[in-house]
Design a protein around this nucleic acid. Structure first.
Lengths: 202, 202
DNA sequence: GTCGTATACTTAACGTTGTTCACTTCAAGA
DNA sequence: TCTTGAAGTGAACAACGTTAAGTATACGAC
C-alpha cells in the first residue's frame, strides 16, 4: 500500500521545486517579478501545473512567506534565553529587524501588504505566534515591574509599531534614499531602545 | 495672442480630469485598480490620450500623490503655531497620522512602496519638506533642552519611524486584523507619546 | 482663400500577465 | 481488459500597460 505514499511524495517534490524556484525569484526581485511562467520555466514544467499545487499566485507567495517566517520565529526563539525580560525583548527586536533587512521582500509582503478585506488573523500564522512571544515577554516585564505605564498588550503593540516603523522605512527607502538627512546608521537600534526607554521603570 | 494660452488651458483641463478620475479610483481601491483604461473611460477619452499628459502609470500616480501630499504639508503647517516645540511635534504627529488613515492608499504609495533604485530624494518633494518641519521642531526642542539624548537629526528620524510604524500597521491591517490581540484604539497616540517620552528631559 | 504643419485624438495592435479549458497520457484498481 | 482518476500540456481568454500608425482639425504663412 505504499503507492499513495509514493504519489504523495512525488507531488510534494514538485511542490517543493515550485516553492524553491519562486523563493529565488521573490527574494531577489519581489512580488511583481514572480511570474507564473517564470516559475514554471525554472522547474521545467508548463505554467498550469503550478495550479495543481497552489490556488493562485497569491496563495503561492503566501506559502512561501509562511515558510520563511517560520524560520524567523525560530530565530526569535533561539539564542540563550535571557533571564531579564527586557533584555529578551531587545534580542527579539534585533532578530526581527535583521530578518526585515535580510528578506525585505518577504517583510514587505507579510507586514506591508494589505490582505483580503475579510481575512481574519489565525493563531497558527507566524505573525500571530511571533507577537505572542513579544507579548509574553512584556507580561513578564510588567509583572516584575521592569516596564510600567500601560497594559502589557498596549506596550507590546507600541514596541512592535515602533520597531516596525524603523524596519519598514529602511525596507522602503534603503539607507540611501531618506529625505532631507541620510538615514542614521543606528536607526533601528535607537528606535528600539527609545521605545523601551519610554516604558522603563526608573 | 491668447491662442496658445487657451490651448494651454484646454490641455490643463484634460490633465485635471485625468487626475481627478484617477484620484477617485486610487483613493477607493488602490494602485492596482487604477487602470489606464478605467481612467480613460471615466473621462470619456481613449486610453492613449493619458500618455499625452503623463509619461506612464507611475508618473500619473506620483503626480496624484504629490498633489495630495501638498495638502498634508499645509495641514502639518496649519493650526496655531505652538510656542513649545514638543507640543508642535505632537500636533504634527496627529496631523500626519490622520492623513495616513484618511488616505491609506496615498500613504501606502508614498511611504510604503519602493521607488526606482536610483531615485534620489528631492528637496521639492513633499516628503522632504515635511521631514524638514519635524527636524526644525526637533532642533528647537534640543536647543531649549526639552529633548535630550541624541542629535536632532537622529531624534527626528526615531520619532518619524515610530509614528510611521503605528500608521503603517493600521494602514496594512486595519484596526480589526491585528494578530493575537486587537489593535489598541489609541495605538497611534500611545506610540507617538512613548517615542517622545523616551527623549524628554526630566 | 489655400496650403503645409503641428497638435489632439483614436483605432488597432503588441507583448505580457494570471488563469482556465479541453485534451492527452498513463499508472492504479476492478 | 476496461475504467477511472490524476498529472500535465497546448492553446486560448481577458485584462493589463504601452506603442505605432493614421485621421481630423485648428493654426500660421502665403
Amino acid at each position: 500500500m505504499g503507492i499513495v505514499e509514493r504519489r504523495e511524495r512525488e507531488r510534494e517534490k514538485v511542490r517543493r521545486q515550485i516553492l524553491d524556484a519562486a523563493r529565488e525569484l521573490f527574494a531577489r526581485r519581489g512580488y511583481e517579478s514572480v511570474t507564473m511562467r517564470a516559475v514554471a520555466e525554472a522547474i521545467e514544467y508548463s505554467p498550469p501545473t503550478i495550479y495543481n499545487h497552489f490556488e493562485d499566485k497569491e496563495d503561492l507567495v503566501q506559502a512561501l512567506c509562511r515558510e520563511d517566517f517560520t524560520r524567523l520565529f525560530s530565530a526569535l526563539n533561539a539564542g540563550p534565553h535571557a533571564r531579564d525580560p527586557v533584555e529578551r525583548i531587545r534580542r527579539m527586536g534585533r532578530a526581527y529587524a535583521r530578518f526585515a533587512l535580510d528578506f525585505p521582500n518577504h517583510y514587505r509582503f507579510m507586514f506591508m501588504t494589505a490582505m483580503v478585506p475579510d481575512h481574519k488573523p489565525n493563531p497558527d500564522e507566524p505573525g500571530w505566534r511571533s507577537f505572542e512571544l513579544l507579548l509574553e515577554a512584556c507580561r513578564e516585564a510588567v509583572a516584575r515591574g521592569r516596564l510600567v505605564g500601560d497594559a502589557p498588550e498596549a506596550i507590546a503593540q507600541v514596541l512592535w509599531a515602533s520597531l516596525h516603523g524603523a524596519s519598514a522605512l529602511l525596507v522602503t527607502y534603503g539607507p540611501e534614499q531618506f529625505p532631507c538627512v541620510p538615514a542614521d546608521p543606528q536607526l533601528i537600534e535607537k528606535t528600539c531602545e527609545n521605545a523601551l526607554r519610554g516604558f522603563l521603570a526608573r
